[in-house]
């Protein structure tokens, strides 16, 4: 009965492990050094894929939340909550790597760059989503409320995106990272890193889901006793 949930995290885990071992080699040996930013630019290979994983997680949470309200399947709630949690983790990575990148390039840990601000606000919503879980007692109600917040929160992404963009263009004094068109070697490494992070994302997600299922089972066994 537990065959499937344990096999998927295993496969993705192995894949992520292999990719994560190869990635540093590609990042530091294969890809060229960017002219203006130098070595600091290397963090881009971790920063941007983390951001992709974060958005993927929030999007999955949104989809599963809709399905939960529609089908009332407990599993949908579980998947939504786990996606949000893993998404929160990657969001934290984005913010940390963003700060590390910003320090040598712009001379400050945090500049209110539009993309980073978007990440920060989404991170706050995900954190609120996570807290909602701990503040509610009734399991069924908490699942419903979570789903509502999952939908409301994700709908906010285009607004945050548009608002932060408008906001930054109205205050042009802060240096902004210009759009970079990557040379081919960097592009390959970048795509490899995206795959790596997606593999890591799914490995963590599947692992988290099987853990949550085990937890649920334990709860119902406890209730029986």
């Amino acid at each position: 009965m537990h065959q499937k949930p344990y096999i998927l995290p295993f496969i993705f885990g192995i894949l992520a492990l292999i990719c994560l071992t190869i990635a540093p080699y590609l990042v530091f040996m294969y890809a060229g050094i960017e002219k203006e930013m130098g070595l600091a630019q290397k963090i881009f290979y971790y920063h941007v894929p983390s951001a992709f994983s974060m958005f993927l997680g929030s999007f999955l949470c949104f989809i599963f939340s809709i399905f939960y309200l529609w089908k009332r399947d407990k599993n949908c709630d579980l998947w939504a909550a786990c996606s949000a949690e893993v998404s929160l983790l990657f969001g934290t990575l984005v913010l940390i790597t963003g700060a590390i990148w910003a320090k040598p390039i712009w001379g400050a840990w945090w500049v209110w760059d539009a993309q980073l601000t978007l990440t920060l606000i989404l991170w706050l919503i995900l954190a609120a989503y996570h807290m909602l879980h701990t503040y509610l007692e009734d399991a069924v109600q908490s699942a419903r409320f979570r789903a509502v917040l999952g939908i409301i929160g994700f709908l906010n992404v285009p607004f945050i995106h548009y608002a932060t963009k408008l906001w930054r263009t109205h205050h042009p004094e802060v240096v902004r990272g210009e759009e970079i068109s990557l040379p081919p070697d960097m592009k390959i490494v970048f795509f490899f890193c995206v795959i790596t992070f997606f593999a890591l994302f799914f490995a963590l997600l599947f692992k988290r889901v099987s853990l949550a299922k085990a937890q649920n089972e334990l709860e119902s066994l406890k209730a029986e006793i």
Binding site: A128, M131, L149, I152, Y162, T164, L166, W167, H170
Partner: peptide
């Protein structure tokens, strides 16, 4: 406030600006 403020940020930004 924990739930409302993060979601309200874009509209708040628009209102202030």
């Amino acid at each position: 406030p924990l739930l409302t403020l993060p979601i309200f940020i874009p509209a708040l930004l628009a209102a202030i600006e």
